[in-house]
Design a protein around this nucleic acid. Structure first.
Lengths: 209, 209, 209, 209
DNA sequence: GATGAATGAGGGTTCATTCAT
DNA sequence: AATGAATGAACCCTCATTCAT
């Protein structure tokens, strides 16, 4: 049987695969170390037999990687849709910050994913290779941000006197910064919300006309 | 025997421990997945027997964590010294960027360490707990940055109209962003150097009077 | 439902069972290790569902054993018929050698079967037990040879001054020797044909008047 | 560490390897199906830890194959020595038959080994490949027999009017036949001894002047 | 009846840790 | 003190067998 790749459309996903993905993402959201996840953890949480997982995936690593790709590409696509409802760059950026902080599971997965994109763990390396091959670039948040900025530049909302790369990277770094703060334990949850307006203000002051 | 903690002074380190740390850091610098490092990899590279490692550490994880703490606290202390030679905030920040990009091994370890501070892997969790207990805060780059900014504010070089947290986080995020770009494969190495002046200019424009 | 035993008459065999047997024997003829044959290999080659195989057999081992019994008893019966067309012992023996070398699949299965009769693998042990119970002795090539020799002795063609057992065993050993040589890779295929006249001559010289 | 090959000299064998070999051979002698032997069976019988086996061998199959090569090459070498004490071909052949029937364990291993040389099981295939590469031909009983016959021909004891191959194969087939009969359950043990003189007489009548 | 998706017991292999030398 | 051979718990993966459809 053809094994999963992580890029299947939502409706193409067999039920069992959906359960496997959900199990992995729950574990990740619970803060379990990805490297410590056991196949039996996943299948038990998914409520299916261990062997079944291997009908859809070749290795444990595949299960986890596909679950992460699934989560992040889904998240990015959802953010794309949400952002497209706004016309101004500023509103889009605000929406972006709101979107990523929204749900714990997604936030955790996104963080994990971003880490992996700049990490040298096994999962990181594999994901980077996958991303490089990924024609749809569905998983690349950078691509999303780049498009957003380019269009805003075309509309004249964002300065063109700074390199596109710099603007995109700045946006990304502030976004991650925000996520990192959000993710810290409770006490700082407030701090995150206090910082948000400053982060946005800083961004707009630097890049918007 | 008392086991190592990672906070020993340089001169307190037994020779064997030094060799163990060096081995771990070399492996990390080579891009080996921390989770994939085996005790035999470490001791072989260190040129000592496996049993000896257990005279100084209780578990494999301890060896790795202490090596990382050692590397990062050393790095931060060295940066402290380097920075203290400059009097202006701008020069200090420039020096900071130069320092972290300087050496591959350090950069890699620093990245790994930072990842771990915002990660939920086993090593991450342990390091975070250790950092929370760490009275000297020797390992906390944030503390260093905070001190730097506070003093600059006292000297009137940095604005006090923005929250200290925000300034520190911004500085940190730009620094990490820069490191991440530096760490990408060859092609981008140039991109990193092209971005640097913009990053610094952006920082100074936002925070310096 | 009553499960198969391997001794069903050709016309009693359900179509699916025929397909299963054919699949097993093809695999064996392809040189696949009997111990490595998977149920899915068999049913896939047979073009039927896995569950169906278990309607006719209790275990995987049963499928394989019955297929082998089927192949060998069929082969022996066919050889019996072919031999009965000849009246002289010498002609019968020549026919015997021709018959066993005839078809690759049969030769392979026969070899496998003979191995199993003098082996201690699981299949061997089971087959030996079965053969001991086999009232018809349909599977026992030795019985065929014994009858052949006994009748030839009665007709005065074969010496009675040597023990029957010895003559039968000698015949068997030469036959197997010949098969073994036939089965070696290509180069020796010729060698087999060169040896054949010597093998027969030796046999006849020793046992025929 | 360098792994075992099965061709180590007796005195080169680490103690643990010796124990592993002994365990495998005991199991084989007990009539356990080679394909059913578990690593834990071997190490338990050997009285060592499971992991230790993997210090000396890469896979379970390696352990078993090396044990068989060890047993057979040892046996053949011992037979070589025993045979070399006799000067006449007839005495040598008699000694050969005595030697192979001598010890249960050896007989069983030799049978297993011979099976494997004309079989298509995994072990068989691997052993055949090894034997083809084996420069010493230490494991090849055929080589031993061939030398024996050639020398006897040179001494004028064995006819040169028959092809060498035929003589060697005949000798081999009678030898194996004899072993097979010896190996059958109790009742036939006697039969074997009754057959022996006829087998030898037949051989000598056919090949000796 | 026929199927093949699902199961989970079982076994090969790895590697952190120990301890006799 | 230092070693590394030995251990065995742990875990991934396979595949015979079942059973709902």
């Amino acid at each position: 049987m053809g094994k999963m790749t992580g890029y299947e459309k939502e409706h193409e996903l067999p039920q069992k695969v959906r359960q496997l993905y959900a199990a992995v993402l729950e574990l990740v959201a619970e803060g379990v170390d990805v490297n410590a996840i056991k196949v039996s953890d996943i299948t038990q949480k998914a409520g299916i037999g261990k062997g079944t997982a291997y009908d859809y995936f070749d290795t444990k690593e595949d299960i986890i990687i596909c679950a992460l790709i699934y989560a992040v590409s889904g998240m990015i696509n959802r953010i794309k849709v949400e952002i497209s409802q706004y016309e101004s760059f500023k509103m889009q950026v605000e929406q972006l910050f709101t979107a990523v902080e929204k749900e714990l599971v997604e936030r955790e997965c996104f963080m994990r994913f971003v880490h992996m994109m700049t990490d040298s763990s096994f999962y990181a390396t594999t994901l980077q290779q996958r991303a490089a091959l990924d024609v749809h670039k569905e998983c690349d948040a950078m691509v999303l941000l780049r498009q957003m900025v380019e269009e805003a530049q075309r509309r004249g909302e964002v300065t063109t006197s700074l390199p596109l790369d710099y603007i995109v990277f700045s946006l990304m770094s502030k976004l991650l910064l925000y996520l990192a703060v959000c993710n810290e334990r409770q006490e700082r949850e407030d701090k995150a919300h206090q910082l948000k307006p400053y982060i946005l203000k800083g961004l707009f002051a630097e890049f918007c006309r």
